[in-house]
Design a protein around this nucleic acid. Structure first.
Lengths: 340, 340
DNA sequence: TACGGCAATGTTAGCGCTATCATAAACATC
DNA sequence: GATGTTTATGATAGCGCTAACATTGCCGTA
């Protein structure tokens, strides 16, 4: 048995220095071996890897970030991780940046501007190499603090002529207008809208109302749901029917709520689309599987995340800021199915 | 105009030193002002806050972590962020730790053991103050590397007599057995199970099969779905019916798949629960809203996250490791509704 | 033999914070 | 007034890494 006392207690995590000593080399060579194995002689590399395994060494990324000024963090801000449509965007993003070693630091701001402000502060402090936000940011203080930091910022899910840095989205206004024109074409003259609580839904309503007005139709009855659940969609639909029994077309700002509306019709024995046409937005699986299947706006949820990731990688690769201010419209598609 | 050239380019982010100079104090006092405002004189505090605002100073948390040996990061590993039931657990966790300033670093391992291994390495490198994992970890290498680090680790969604550190869950085995006994009590003698792909579903199947066997019923027909979607549930159900047309009770490992089964019955005109009884697990909103409403096992998704957060805070507060090895069973409940 | 070039490795000096201890000033106690 | 006690602040020394610049030895070429 080796009786020499260890210099540092074994309970502490090994540092790069410990690996270097065990491998009979220097800290710098270990650092290189782990990040650019090609720059280290094969024999040295093997000794270092053996030492890493023996000690269970895991580099301290805080120290690494501090020294290299690269955190390896991609900060992602979403309104809520509970919504599977946003997680599609996150998945697209993760897939796009999978090769680069960036880790997603996901923050959930619960649709609250105040929480988002705090989240931005906290995330910026971690020196992210890039920031992706679901939704355009309108709060000037937040915009300023995101602009001030060097990392690329991509907003998504909306279009804005004046993005913080880059924006990848679709026109919520046009989506609303498209649904209105579709309902009008189906002979629906008395339309309603269910949605609110966030700027994207408001843009959809604006487009919806504008297209109705352009066609000379009366303005939509509107209901703001309590939340974005099926039950909230049901209840909002019930309130609309109570207020305006002659409604013959309803656009729900999300498929989940639209499914609520559809289920409520089925419960009440209201014929869809005979008496009331229903449309949603998101092309979620549940809408596709309903009977009749839900007419909806398919949005590029995955693609927006993926494209955001590509933009980020391009910017991080070359020091080329020419992409700044870029606005990318990925469009959307109306999927006409059984409910209209 | 002040003509003196700045010592550092203005484009660089301000450091704590810059704030200190502007406020006419020292870096240490600024650091204290931001973390323990009570320990700084009111007047000094005001000057410092003014300087922070003026410069838009945001502390570099990498440096902070390195110096303080506290990262403020709570690492969360989930099989997929796309599943809203796991996001309930994350929400419970977030709520529980909201006051402590811990940030959730969420990693998604896509149900892949290999990805999880990599994710653990990456997350451990960020020196998390705590780790929460959805699912028990069986991979010995991963268990070892999580054990080696000092931070508390909480596994969730399963029970295991030998947790890495702590575990908060429910018995998937018992959940399966409970559903089996319920179906038997409803006179269903020919049962099937749809699920797989992960250890929790396998435990449910084991319990389901054991309870059937104990009652002398034939072993369940089982189908492993392609994924965990509604469509996969539909298809698996179709295959079961083709193989065993006399099936009169089906337990789906998740509500989403169960909804698929229910919709498939409706499409085929199969009476539920007259001819086939259906049960799911998760108590998701869609199951509650279906007509007839889905019988399901309600699991403590939110509570598991919340309890995990509480355990972590307790451990971080006092240096009391007595909670180690703790196994907490939060149970589950059978919600009998229209489909059985 | 001398020289430049290259590959492999090492040395030094921070990155921007905070733990720790020292100091100074203000106050209370006898 | 001498002494302890508290409160506010500051000086110093790292935390564990990596950028940038040596240094070393080896090769080919003049």
């Amino acid at each position: 048995m080796n009786e020499s006392a260890p210099l540092r207690p074994l309970t502490e995590r090994p540092r790069i220095e410990d690996v270097a000593i065990l491998a009979g080399t220097s800290a710098m060579t270990v650092s290189r071996a782990l990040r650019q194995p090609g720059k280290v002689a094969a024999e040295t590399l093997a000794r270092i890897m053996a030492a890493v395994d023996a000690l269970g060494y895991v580099p301290n990324l805080s120290a690494s970030s501090l020294a290299s000024r690269r955190s390896g963090i991609l900060a992602v801000l979403v309104p809520t991780i509970g919504n599977s449509i946003f997680s599609e965007t996150v998945r697209g993003l993760a897939d796009a940046v999978a090769a680069a070693d960036l880790h997603l630091l996901i923050g959930d701001f619960g649709y609250s501007d105040d929480k988002r402000r705090k989240l931005v502060r906290a995330l910026v402090g971690r020196q992210p190499d890039a920031v992706v936000i679901v939704g355009a940011v309108h709060d000037e203080a937040v915009r300023a603090s995101l602009r001030r930091q060097a990392a690329p910022v991509v907003e998504t899910w909306e279009l804005s002529p004046d993005p913080i840095d880059m924006i990848v989205g679709f026109s919520n206004f046009e989506a609303g207008a498209t649904v209105a024109r579709h309902l009008l074409a189906r002979g629906r003259g008395r339309c309603a809208f269910v949605g609110g609580l966030e700027s994207r839904a408001e843009a959809r309503l604006a487009g919806f109302a504008a297209a109705l007005a352009a066609a000379g139709a009366p303005p939509p009855e509107t209901e703001v749901p309590a939340d974005l659940s099926i039950a909230a969609g049901r209840e909002a639909f019930g309130r609309i029917l109570a207020r305006a029994p002659d409604i013959d077309g309803v656009f729900f700002a999300t498929d989940v709520m639209a499914v609520g509306g559809l289920l409520e019709c089925q419960r009440r024995g209201i014929d869809v689309p005979g008496r009331v046409a229903i449309a949603g937005l998101g092309n979620l699986e549940i809408g596709r599987q309903m009977q009749p299947a839900l007419t909806t706006i398919e949005i590029p949820a995955y693609a927006m995340g993926h494209r955001a990731g590509e933009l980020i990688l391009a910017r991080l690769a070359k020091e080329d800021p020419s992409a700044s201010g870029r606005v990318i419209d990925l469009g959307f598609a109306l999927l006409t199915r059984g409910t209209t």
